[in-house]
Amino acid sequence: MKLRFLGKNSNVGDCPTLYATDRGTYLVQGWRIFANDLLMHLELGVGETAVEVPTELFEHLTKDGLATGEIRRVEDPIVILTPGGTFVVQGQEVTDTEALAQMEIPDYETVVEVPKTAITALLEEPLEADLQRRAQPAL
């Protein structure tokens, strides 16, 4: 898998980072989630995990030719907004040794792979029906 660095949120050390791949996906490097209360609410499939990243990380999507990097639709299971104002991103955990060798990943981070189509769909304005559904109180 070939990677193209899009950006990170710090100039110092390792931190959440965004990459585009030659497979029509994005790799999101972020903080491992150890909080059991959060993990209990995720439905992780085989080989999946989730990472936590600052919301600003997706601003780097503009370097991949997208008009905006602002996530406008927060939808499970791809992206969840935490009470702390960060995103939890769910996807296939990256195990490709060639790809991992191109990154610097500290022990407290990991990497998930998410289809570009799933991420770009989150950049679209919510439809009227989506807004109404979110406004309805949960029964």
Rank of each mutant, 00 (worst) to 15 (best):
V53I: 13
R73Q: 02
T120F: 08
D64Q: 11
L27F: 08
I119E: 01
L139P: 13
Y19D: 07
K2C: 03
R133Q: 15
M103Q: 15
P77I: 05
N11Q: 15
T25D: 05
R32Y: 04
L131A: 05
I78H: 06
E113S: 05
P54K: 09
V89I: 09
Y19E: 08
V74P: 06
T82H: 14
Q29W: 09
W31H: 15
V112D: 00
F5C: 08
D64P: 02
T68N: 02
G45T: 03
V12M: 13
A101K: 15
V28T: 05
H41R: 07
G30W: 14
N36P: 08
A50T: 06
T25K: 08
K63A: 11
G13Y: 11
Y26D: 05
G13I: 13
V88E: 03
D37T: 08
E104V: 11
Y26V: 00
T62P: 00
R72E: 05
M103V: 03
K8T: 15
P16C: 10
E98I: 07
G91R: 08
L39G: 01
E125W: 10
R4N: 07
P106A: 13
D130I: 01
L38G: 04
L131T: 14
L57P: 03
M103T: 13
T49N: 13
A129K: 04
Y19V: 03
L6Y: 13
G7P: 02
V53H: 13
P83L: 15
T62R: 12
G69Q: 02
M1G: 06
E48A: 03
Q102D: 06
R73F: 00
I71V: 05
G7V: 07
G84P: 14
A135I: 15
L27C: 04
G85W: 12
V114L: 04
L3A: 11
L57K: 04
L57W: 06
R32H: 03
L57F: 11
D96Y: 03
E98M: 06
V53Y: 06
Y26C: 00
R32C: 11
Q136P: 01
V51W: 09
D64C: 00
E48I: 01
F5D: 10
G24L: 11
F34A: 01
H41K: 10
D96Q: 02
D14H: 14
P115R: 13
M40Y: 02
G91D: 09
E70R: 02
D130V: 02
A50I: 00
L100K: 13
I105G: 06
T68A: 02
D22G: 12
T110I: 10
Y26S: 03
L44E: 04
K8H: 15
D14N: 14
K2V: 09
A20D: 05
C15N: 15
E109Q: 12
L127K: 15
D64F: 11
L81Q: 08
R23M: 14
T62F: 07
F5K: 13
T55W: 00
A20Q: 09
K63P: 00
I80Y: 06
V79W: 03
Q132H: 14
D107H: 10
V89Y: 10
L38M: 04
V111K: 09
E109P: 05
G13A: 11
I33N: 04
R73K: 07
E128G: 09
D64G: 02
